[in-house]
Design a protein around this nucleic acid. Structure first.
Lengths: 369, 369
DNA sequence: TGTTGACATTCAAACGTTTGAATAGTAGAA
DNA sequence: TTCTACTATTCAAACGTTTGAATGTCAACA
């Protein structure tokens, strides 16, 4: 039994047990080029002994010496938002072959945590950083600290190219237009809209897309049927916001046959609100979401939504960040890249053609009940 | 501008810029006890210079020297399962004050990945490990490698105390009984059941609880209305399984007024199936879930479910693992602990009293339509 | 016998930090 | 003066690896 100073088995332990030097053991176990010179017998012995003792190389010592951490920091604004999960999954899948380890951190929608974790990512010498952004994330901090340390960044869900950061996000404008056009093609003309919170970067372009598609179809929005969500504090606040907007819509007394919600959780809230008032979805009112997250898929009716290719976006982010690391190694200057992922309309059960005036009267009746 | 060998600013850089030794800088910046002896002026100068140069201590060097990684490995079987998220959140919250960093890994329901990540956790010298278990996780490997290295483990969602591992899980038997009793109190007597997959550890005790509560109420299950899910490959397979079971239920032609599903995703699948056949939930058929995950909360009707206090379980796991680390430090022997968390019935909208025979005829009519 | 080369192994320095021990410098007390 | 005590700072070793250079061994060739 080797004498262990720390709790872990080290190269020295293995070396002593084999009667050879630390160097030899290191060379064999890390399969360095020199290991071809080591006698087959020795190699086998060393490997067997390492296995037997339960040796695991110390990543700290190794990284310190090699000056490579083999780590990519992944900083998500809130892991409890189902939106983040497919992105994270894509990143993991993309990082696997390159043998980079994702260092996954969850800022829990708290700006303070976000900054702390960013520090930690730097301290752990991540070779690159991927940020899944939302309003929580403060660009000034990011730029000053991470870029000062010459660590490549890719940001997902926000365009920060003008600040020199490679960015991947869905084409919100096209997405908004896609949703609007779907409703228009179904024959809806009286449409309520729930815009995203002011501080979310997606809100504005999505609204622009909706408006331009509406204009192209000659549809005008009733300003009393255009709502805006409050700032989000957690993933369920979108749901609560949608629920509240639904009741305000109904209370307004204005006619509408469809609701264009900011995202899927909002749409689910709207549906709860409408159903609670006795309306049927989609027969009395169509409801559209955005993103295509898990709850939208498994709810019934399934939410018709504009899908973001989240997994693919994460995959791309991981590829970009690895590229950037390699480029830095070769001292190549790289300029920030931008990818606008194409959204895709996913038609499920929450949208259908409007029922016409006859139905609307029924709805007004139901409201009273 | 200091000469940097690696891309990062080191203590040496700061020391040179301040005209003092590396030791002094280290002492000041890490706020070691000795720093009280350092002149206020020097301290200020060093701190300012560190800030200006963007110095971040190298976690590798520090951990190597201090022989503490300040890291807890957290290995989740699948982060895309909404079940994992609150647990992870609880762990994070619990770890924060102790300044441990969770090293979060996602096994993506792949046993190979699970083992790889476990190796990595050991290589990164995590001081403790929390495993969020499912069938993916293979105990033999876990025990041999992690325990050999004397790293404390806590496992969530499975009882492994008899193997010497502290375990935290919900009291499945009570939970199952809770669900059953709720249906019984509502007046249901013809109940379909969907049991969990064979390889899931929760399935059996949950079923035992259901059966004993049913027996106590004098309710017998129609064997043709007892189903079993196939093995899960991803979080949506529960949904698909529920959907399929629903159609088999209806096809069986046997009467039932309620469905006891294995978990929430299964329940959502059942609802989709029933609604698709023209039944109404809960008017024609009540549906119960288990776990209380996000999609169950935001779907309409909201799923009546047996809530697992996931966040609290994660919190407790983090406390236990930190305890165990401290105990190990003091050479105190610790025996494995067990906590059975109390489940809680959450009544939402998917359950109500059965409609009686009149309604059942309607249902049979709807089936034909 | 000496030189060459291939093979098998080891030396020793380095990565960036921490920290017990050592070194100066200063001031008050004996 | 000398001793003690304190303040302010530095030395140097260590953490566990990796790796370029060095060492030693052996056989074969000139």
């Amino acid at each position: 039994m080797p004498q262990r100073r720390s709790g872990h088995v080290t190269l020295l332990d293995v070396a002593r047990a084999c009667g050879c030097s630390v160097s030899t053991v290191s060379i064999v176990l890390s399969e360095a080029p020199l290991s071809q010179n080591v006698a087959e017998k020795t190699r086998r012995q060393i490997r067997a002994m390492a296995q037997q003792l339960g040796y695991h190389p110390d990543a700290f010592a190794r990284s310190l010496r090699r000056r490579r951490s083999q780590t990519i920091g992944v900083l998500a604004y809130d892991l409890s938002d189902p939106y983040c999960i497919p992105i994270v999954r894509g990143i993991q899948v993309g990082l696997q072959p390159g043998s980079y380890l994702p260092l996954l951190m969850d800022a829990q929608t708290q700006r303070g945590l976000f900054d702390n974790y960013l520090q930690m990512i730097l301290e752990r010498r991540a070779e690159g950083v991927i940020v899944i952004a939302s309003w929580v994330f403060d660009e000034t901090n990011l730029l000053s600290d991470v870029q000062k340390n010459n660590v490549p960044i890719v940001i997902v869900s926000r365009d920060l190219t003008e600040r020199g950061v490679s960015s991947i996000l869905v084409d919100n404008e096209t997405g908004g237009a896609l949703a609007m056009r779907h409703l228009q093609e179904l024959g809806h003309r009286k449409i309520a809209v729930i815009r995203g919170p002011e501080e979310m970067f997606d809100s504005e372009p999505r609204w622009v897309g909706v408006q331009s598609a509406a204009a192209a179809a000659g549809i005008q929005f009733d300003p009393r049927l255009v709502f805006q969500l409050d700032n989000l504090v957690d993933p369920t606040s979108g749901f609560r916001g949608g629920l509240e907007c639904a009741s305000r819509m109904l209370a307004s007394g204005r006619p509408f046959t469809a609701v264009l919600a900011f995202d899927d959780l909002t749409a689910l809230g709207v549906i709860r609100g409408l159903l609670g008032a006795g309306l049927r979805v989609p027969e009395d009112c169509s409801v559209l979401g955005f993103d295509d997250v898990l709850p939208a898929e498994v709810a019934t009716p399934g939410i018709t939504t504009v899908r973001q290719p989240l997994r693919e976006m994460g995959l791309l982010a991981s590829e970009w960040v690895v590229d950037a690391i390699e480029a830095r190694e070769l001292k190549k200057e790289q300029k920030p890249r931008l990818h606008r992922a194409s959204p895709e309309l996913v038609v499920r059960m929450s949208s259908t053609a409007p029922a016409g005036k006859k139905k609307r009267r029924e709805r007004e009746h139901a409201e009273v009940t």
